[in-house]
């Protein structure tokens, strides 16, 4: 009960931001940060809960972005000299779902081929995959326009065509949409993590032989995590594409994966709030620094902060805060049974 009230309060607080922020540029930063947070939440499911590092995570983001853009724009493909395949533009909600689905299918494939061996192998497969997809986006010019980028991507719309429609040209509705999907991603990951599926993932991370001895199917749960994670990253990509309304092969840059990893690790991998806290810090910080420091100085500050966090709080910010909180509580009224604390949280 308590927990739900706090949660609703926090969401309402975030939802009210456009009403009082009064600066569209700040709102823009929050929107892109929110999109990154969704990607970080999705990465955390893999990295934090199953312990598998996907260093090509941006591939799923980019696939979601490109798929949704292409389905909403429509495209022609000259398959033979005499036959051209024409794909008519589809509504954005539909293209967005296609993006999620296609990213998830790619996640399934990657999971199936790489989890036979896992560990370093998974890292390599995901990196290579991201690079391959980037090259496809760059060179399949008939489809993707290559470096010229896909332009004029339609924004999100809401409502019934012909009757009443709201097109998301403005920042505010985009912000609320991103917020809603952040909440949804968070809820999905929390449901998984607090269920037999999430426990199976954690069990595999902690002690694989023991997990299998009680019937946990390794491949099944690692693939499940990859599929959900990839689909969620694809959703983030779709949001991005219909918000900035232009997408080029740079969405596949390695630096974006690195940013997601930093967000998850500094925030606290394997915690529900970690990617949100890490995402807020490393989403807003570069923009905040932009005004006061040159680009090189920015990167240095960025790097130093990250090293400090990882050095002093190796488990990340959220676990450190939880521990500190627990100890503080412990000092005030010592034998408070952890039992009740736990029941409240659940």
């Amino acid at each position: 009960m308590n927990r739900q009230l706090i949660e609703v309060g926090v969401v309402l607080l975030f939802a009210s931001v456009p009403l009082w922020l009064g600066n569209l540029y700040y709102l823009h930063i929050l929107i892109t940060t929110g999109i990154f947070i969704i990607a970080a939440i999705s990465l955390n499911l893999l990295l934090g809960y199953t312990g598998q590092l996907s260093l090509g995570h941006v591939a799923f983001f980019g696939i979601g972005a490109y798929t949704s853009a292409l389905v909403s724009l429509g495209f022609d493909l000259e398959l033979t000299d005499s036959y051209t395949f024409v794909f008519e533009p589809k509504p954005v909600w539909f293209s967005f779902l296609c993006g999620i689905l296609f990213a998830a299918v790619c996640g399934w494939l990657i999971g199936k081929i790489s989890f036979k061996v896992r560990g370093a192998y998974f890292v390599i497969v995901t990196i290579s995959f991201a690079e391959v997809v980037r090259l496809v986006a760059l060179n399949w010019i008939d489809l993707t326009e290559g470096p010229m980028a896909l332009n004029n991507i339609p924004p999100f719309t809401l409502g019934i065509p012909g009757l009443w429609e709201l097109t998301f040209y403005k920042k505010e509705p985009n912000y609320w949409l991103v917020l809603a999907l952040c909440v949804l991603s968070f809820v999905i990951v929390r449901r998984l993590v607090e269920s037999r599926a999430g426990r199976a993932m954690i069990a595999l991370r902690e002690n694989e032989p023991l997990a299998t001895s009680v019937g946990v199917d390794v491949t099944k749960y690692l693939v499940l995590a990859t599929v959900v994670s990839a689909g969620m990253a694809g959703a983030a990509g779709g949001l991005y594409t219909h918000y900035v309304r232009i997408v080029d092969p740079d969405v596949f840059l390695f630096i974006y994966t690195v940013t997601m990893v930093i967000m998850v690790i500094t925030g606290g991998k394997g915690t529900l709030l970690g990617p949100i806290i890490g995402g807020l810090i490393f989403g807003i910080l570069p923009e905040a620094l932009r005004g006061v420091a040159g680009p090189e100085v920015q990167w240095i500050i960025y790097g130093i902060l990250m090293i400090l966090i990882v050095y002093f709080l190796p488990q990340g910010i959220v676990p450190a805060l939880t521990n500190w909180w627990r100890q503080r509580e412990g000092h005030q009224d010592p034998p408070a049974p952890k039992e009740t604390a736990r029941e409240v949280v659940n």
Partner: peptide
Amino acid sequence: LMGLHRRQKQ
């Protein structure tokens, strides 16, 4: 709870 995996059906 992790050991109970097999008994759960969800």
